[in-house]
């Protein structure tokens, strides 16, 4: 049975975030209609015109097409990295939070803290350094650098999601309804993954949006440094890197336009994340006409296994 919640009402910042993300997606989609991003369509760099709304780059390729390719590539890498981090981190966090203070909890949290010892960007660079930038071949399967960047960024985010999931799980496990479900004879696995998890998702999703913003930034930085996707494939980062040298010749469009798209992405996800995350844990509003007892903060009516000596009813 699918859980139903009313969608959160975004404030002004939230709407700006939505608009930014939509613009980003617009460029990414519309730009693909411009044709092949690797095709040489002009003899050299040209300013924006009707035929080439973003102008052309230093080799004469349409910049809108390349920006679109870059925006999509960056988006895919970031989505898959966040997806990977959630798939790995959330179950880890839920299992750790299930028995707060238990052995698994301690083990997992120590591992997570070790991962977090390095600043995330340094950690990702370290991983990429280990794996190298050349394509890796595992039999018939070729793993290109894009996938490895996604994996490295994702691995860097596993601690964040594990912590969020764990914190949310710890809180949920102490709620009355969990004890009630146990009393009803619902198996532990179902309680954890069908009931508690439903309440863990909203904070995780909020973090996911914020993490998305950081991932876009990180991927841009890595590509800028040449550690990301290799040419001729574009990502926003390596477009901006190539563009740096052109500004002095007066070719302003080359760095500014892809750079703006990058900023839109980061800003948009950042603002969206604030909105989604801020609404986690909120209950649905009552339907009009239904009288509601003044809400009470649910107090634990069943004591925890090591109770306060004063309250042992």
């Amino acid at each position: 049975m699918r859980a139903r919640t009313r969608p959160p009402h975004p404030g002004v910042a939230g709407w700006i975030g939505v608009v930014c993300v939509l613009l980003y997606l617009l460029v990414a989609t519309v730009g693909r209609l411009q044709g092949d991003p690797a095709a040489l369509v002009a003899p050299g760099p040209e300013a924006p015109s009707l035929g080439h709304p973003f102008g052309t780059d230093h080799l004469g390729r349409d910049l809108l097409a390349r920006t679109a390719e870059g925006a999509w590539t960056s988006l895919l890498i970031c989505l898959s990295s966040i997806g990977f981090a959630i798939v790995v981190g959330v179950p880890l966090g839920v299992l750790a939070g299930r028995r707060h203070g238990g052995r698994l909890d301690g083990l997992l949290m120590r591992a997570v803290e070790t991962l977090q010892a390095l600043p995330q960007f340094v950690f990702v660079m370290f991983l990429i350094g280990l794996m190298g930038t050349a394509d890796m071949h595992f039999g018939p399967l070729t793993v290109g650098n894009g996938a490895r960047v996604a994996f490295a960024i994702g691995l860097g985010f596993v601690p964040y999601f594990a912590r969020v999931a764990r914190a949310a799980t710890v809180v949920e496990m102490q709620e009355d309804y969990v004890a009630n479900l146990r009393g009803l004879g619902v198996p532990e696995r179902e309680i954890l993954f069908r009931e508690v998890l439903v309440n863990v998702w909203p904070p995780v999703l909020g973090q996911a949006c914020l993490a998305m913003a950081i991932a876009v930034f990180a991927e841009g930085g890595l590509s800028f440094l040449g550690l990301g996707v290799a040419p001729p494939h574009a990502t926003l980062g390596n477009l901006i890197a190539d563009a740096g040298g052109q500004i002095i010749g007066g070719d302003w469009w080359y760095a500014t336009l892809p750079g703006t798209v990058l900023v839109l992405g980061i800003l948009g996800f950042n603002l969206l994340g604030d909105t989604v995350g801020g609404r986690s844990g909120r209950r649905a509003r009552p339907a009009p006409g239904v009288r509601r007892v003044p809400g009470r903060r649910p107090s634990p009516s069943v004591p925890t296994p090591t109770p306060n000596p004063k309250e042992t009813q």
């Binding site: 049975m1 859980a3 139903r4 919640t5 709620e175 009355d176 309804y177 004890a179 009630n180 479900l181 009803l184 004879g185 619902v186 198996p187 179902e190 009931e195 439903v198 309440n199 209950r283 007892v293 809400g295 009470r296 649910p298 107090s299 009516s301 069943v302």
Partner: peptide
């Protein structure tokens, strides 16, 4: 238990909550 509001998962419908023990 004492607090009926806290006895249910706030994000699941009552139908789900009542169906669940039967199903289990």
């Amino acid at each position: 238990t004492q607090n009926p509001r806290a006895a249910f998962n706030r994000r699941r419908t009552l139908r789900h909550a009542l169906d669940q023990p039967l199903r289990v």
